[in-house]
């Protein structure tokens, strides 16, 4: 039976109707929260046909799955999905609601929170239940402070940064209840004209294993050609801090930082970047950070694992040519 005061995970479904990777992470996190607070783990799925999604969600730990079905939910429309989920939350009466901080999640969850007049913490990196209430931790001020947020009243909503938890492992022997929720879909107010995919000649920053980024100290667009050479050798992408983007040396789509893209590569190479707080906040999940800067006092060295103090025009050729030798190219 679906219990009140549960931990409710809102599933994001692929076009084929399967819960995505972030949803499984939320179920992993949610199971831990539920166990520590004696609450029930639940999930919600909205789509054309939610039967197979519900089965996966139950196998992944949800004791109850609330579903809203209809042809109106073929693609994401915020007005329709918010109305559906508002009804689900009213019916489920959860103490906490978890959503992935994805493209859809970022659009959906503020609308849902305001529709419910409920507290919301976005881009949470860790979650905990304290005295039966959700406490969500997120970086603020460009990562210069970590804040823990607790909501007055219930439910508390959180959107969770992808990768913040280990995914739940499905187990087909688990059982759970499916609760169908009837919702009258409102008339659409937005008209979607279709997605236009852009050519990705270079490796995308969010998916790159290696990122070589340049800062103000590169002095011009020409410097980025040398970074591109190093990135190509390492099979990586070229990013930039904000000043080169503002100066028009590198496209704004390749800006790394809290005002650009938040990245988590295996290796992040910061060339002539001193390390503003908003930039550092966008790279702190990198496994290894390498800094090249002529200023030994540059803050970037404090947050790096490897560093060379020197002019990048001289350091970079030495680095690239030895890498070429090592890789035999």
């Amino acid at each position: 039976m679906a219990e009140k005061e549960g931990i409710l995970v809102i599933a994001e479904l692929s076009p084929a109707g399967a819960p995505d990777a972030v949803t499984l992470e939320l179920l992993g996190l949610g199971a831990r929260l539920a166990a520590s607070s004696g609450k029930q783990l639940q999930a919600a799925a909205v789509g054309i046909d939610t039967a197979s999604a519900a089965a996966t969600l139950i196998a992944s730990g949800a004791a109850a799955v609330f579903t809203v079905e209809g042809s109106a939910y073929a693609a994401y429309d915020p007005d329709l999905h918010v109305t559906a989920l508002e009804k689900v939350v009213e019916e489920a009466g959860p103490s906490a609601v978890l959503v992935g901080n994805t493209t859809v999640g970022q659009d959906l969850v503020p609308r849902l929170a305001f529709a419910l007049k409920a507290g919301l913490t976005t881009d949470a990196v860790s979650l905990e239940m304290k005295g039966g209430a959700l406490a969500s931790t997120k970086p603020v001020y460009g990562g210069n402070a970590m804040a823990v947020f607790v909501s007055r009243g219930k439910p508390a909503l959180a959107s969770v940064r992808p990768g913040a938890g280990d995914p739940a492992k499905p187990d087909a022997s688990r059982t759970g209840e499916t609760v169908k929720v009837d919702v009258e879909a409102p008339s659409p107010r937005l008209s979607f004209g279709g997605k236009v995919l852009e050519e990705g000649g270079d490796v995308r920053l969010e998916e790159a294993r290696v990122i070589v980024s340049g800062g103000r100290g590169l002095g011009g667009a020409e410097g980025f050609e040398q970074l591109r050479e190093l990135a190509r050798l390492l099979g990586g992408a070229v990013g930039a801090s904000r000043p080169p983007v503002d100066a028009g040396w590198w496209p704004s789509t390749q800006q790394v930082g809290i005002t650009g893209k938040i990245v988590s590569p295996e290796v992040y190479v910061a060339v002539a970047i001193s390390g503003s707080s908003q930039h550092l906040s966008g790279i702190s999940d990198s496994r290894v950070i390498v800094a090249i800067n002529k200023d030994p006092e540059a803050y970037i060295f404090k947050v790096s694992d490897y560093g060379v103090v020197g002019e990048w025009q001289q350091v970079l050729p030495g680095l690239s040519s030895r890498i070429r030798e090592i890789l035999g190219v």
Binding site: K117, A118, G119, L120, T121, A135, P139, V140, G143, N144, A145, M146, A147, V148, F149, V150, S151, R152, G153, A156, L280, S284, I289, A291, I292, F301, K302, V303, S304, D305, Y306, G307, V308, V309, G310, E311, Q314, V315, L316, P317, G318, L319, S320, S321, R322
Partner: peptide, 30 residues
Amino acid sequence: VINEITELTAPNRERRCRLVEGESPEDAGA
């Protein structure tokens, strides 16, 4: 106000940096 900050801390994001030196900047790069 619905959502309140109950704790605020300065994160420790500093790492131990191995500074690589060389006979020249090119050598340090290598």
